[in-house]
Simulated assay, not measured.
Amino acid sequence: MFLAGLILVLDPATGLEECPNYIGRGNGDTSAFRDSSWDLYLPVLAFVWIMATIVEQALPFARGSRTDSTVRATAAVSMSIIVSCCVLGPLIFMCRR
Results as ranks from 00 to 15, higher is better:
M79R: 05
C19V: 06
L10R: 00
S78V: 04
E17Y: 12
N21F: 09
L59M: 14
S31M: 07
G89L: 11
T14K: 15
S69A: 13
F47V: 12
I81P: 05
R66Y: 07
M1I: 09
I92W: 08
M94Y: 07
A75K: 01
L42R: 11
L88I: 14
L59G: 04
A52I: 02
T53A: 02
S36C: 11
M51H: 01
L40P: 01
N21Q: 13
M1C: 06
L88C: 10
N27Y: 11
F93L: 12
S78H: 12
C85R: 07
A52T: 08
S37G: 03
R66L: 03
A52F: 12
F61I: 01
L3C: 10
C85Y: 15
A76T: 13
S65N: 07
R96G: 07
N21W: 07
T74M: 15
A58V: 00
E18T: 04
N21L: 09
R63S: 02
E17L: 05
S37R: 14
D29R: 15
R97H: 11
N27A: 01
F2V: 12
P12Q: 11
G15I: 05
G24R: 11
L59D: 10
T14F: 14
I7P: 00
F93R: 00
T30V: 14
T67H: 13
G24T: 13
S37Y: 08
N21R: 05
C86W: 11
G89D: 09
L91C: 03
P60K: 13
F93Y: 09
T74F: 14
G28T: 13
R97T: 09
Q57P: 02
L45N: 00
V48Y: 04
V9P: 02
C95D: 00
V71S: 03
G28V: 15
